[in-house]
Simulated assay, not measured.
Amino acid sequence: MELNKHLADQGANEALVELFSAIEDASKIVQSEVSRAGLGADIYGAKGSENIQGEEQQKLDVYADECFIHAFRGSGQVAGLASEEQDNALQFDESLKGEYVVMIDPLDGSSNIDVNVAIGTIFAIYRRVSKSGETLIEADFLQAGRDQVAAGYVNYSVSTQMVLSTGNGTHIYTLDPESGTYQLISENVKIPADGKVYSINEVNLDDFDDNLKRYAQHCKDKRKEDGKRMYTGRYIGSLVADFHRNLLKGGIYVYPATVDSPNGKLRLLYECNPMSFLAENAGGKGSDGVQNILDIKPTELHQRCPFYVGSPVMMDEALPSI
């Protein structure tokens, strides 16, 4: 079943279906360039500039950002957008009657581009709180994750897949290269209650708080009855890739606060919120270590936070007080 038909069957209105058509179109353009591995335009390597977070922008970061901005602007359904690659939120004056705003990381894991590791696009969709046709306001963008209308990501890997939720389960679609359409392959995906993988960058272990240090050691020490290890460590360094594996196989992903990043490194609005929304709709959990990610009221467009997400049993072990 094609993406748009499945969305309609899930109860998505026409405007939301059209918005997803824009995501589909832009993602196919990005996928085409990613799959050519630099054979086309010179969009690989560093651009020589930084985004607002002080991170070096890759050429493909900027290319992907421009693709999605163009698609959303042309859809007529999106009044504004906040992107990791843009200092400030964008307002689309030509579609101010649009009822949605989008938060997006156009190319997650872009530091892996030159080594051909899986990368992705992460997005969150909200219904604007300001009146249709009027100038957007800050509150349109600073909404809690619980208010998301839909969220998802595109995983550019061996195949290109879109994982999304409109609040009625989490679903996976694969891009069919012959028809050029996303086809439903897994409906109502459920993350395993427990898992075998913990995804933590342990090079920062000395900077973790004591509770997380104990949990990391627990993952190393826990054994099955036959003496074999219960868990294994897997950390790709691309949130989309790490999350996708854990969604299907079971596991936990952690990017905590550290000495260098006391507020965490991942962004709440366009990384942690959409991934937590997907996890919760698949039976998993997302937290900043203190509370459910989806309950956090953001105060800044590029706000960072610690991030724990994954299988409920592993989440409960890592954060027993949550």
Rank of each mutant, 00 (worst) to 15 (best):
G133N: 06
E94P: 08
T166Y: 04
H171M: 06
T258L: 13
I113V: 14
R223T: 12
E66C: 09
I119L: 09
Q91G: 11
E225W: 13
H244Y: 03
L81E: 00
G109S: 09
D176C: 12
I125K: 07
G120R: 00
S159C: 15
N51L: 12
D242P: 03
L107G: 00
G74V: 12
S179K: 07
D288S: 08
E202H: 06
P106L: 10
I52W: 05
D288G: 07
R214H: 13
G233Q: 14
D260G: 11
I122F: 01
L142N: 04
M314S: 05
Y270I: 07
I113R: 12
H244W: 00
F208P: 01
A41P: 13
M103V: 14
T166A: 03
S130C: 09
I172R: 03
Y198N: 13
A282N: 03
N201T: 05
E55C: 07
L136P: 00
Q217N: 13
Y253H: 09
S130A: 09
G310Q: 01
N246S: 10
G48F: 03
D114I: 09
C272L: 14
G145F: 01
I23S: 02
R146G: 04
E55D: 15
D9S: 12
N201M: 12
I43P: 01
K47W: 07
L294A: 10
L96P: 01
Q10M: 15
Q143V: 05
L136A: 05
V259I: 15
D87K: 15
I104N: 00
A124W: 02
S165C: 11
L16F: 04
M315W: 02
D93Y: 13
V115R: 14
K28H: 05
A118G: 06
I252Q: 02
G98R: 01
P192R: 06
V117F: 13
T174L: 14
L107D: 00
S27W: 01
E280S: 09
P312A: 11
E138R: 15
G48W: 04
M314E: 11
D242N: 05
D194W: 10
D87M: 11
L239P: 02
L3P: 01
G38L: 08
E2W: 08
V115L: 09
V17N: 00
G283R: 06
N188Y: 06
A216T: 12
S32C: 10
S261Y: 15
I296Q: 01
Y182W: 08
D9L: 11
S35C: 11
G237I: 09
L142W: 03
K224G: 07
F123Y: 14
Y153W: 09
Y270P: 04
Q57Y: 07
G195A: 12
G11H: 01
K131I: 15
Q217R: 13
N188G: 08
F123G: 04
Q53T: 13
L319D: 03
F208K: 02
S132M: 12
E317K: 13
V102W: 00
I252N: 01
L96Q: 07
S27V: 05
I43M: 10
Y255W: 12
A144N: 01
S27R: 02
P106I: 06
D114N: 15
E202Q: 10
G76S: 05
V149Q: 04
C305M: 10
T135M: 11
K47V: 08
L205A: 15
H302M: 08
N246F: 05
G48R: 04
Q57C: 14
S321R: 14
T170Q: 03
M315T: 02
L212G: 05
S132D: 11
I52N: 11
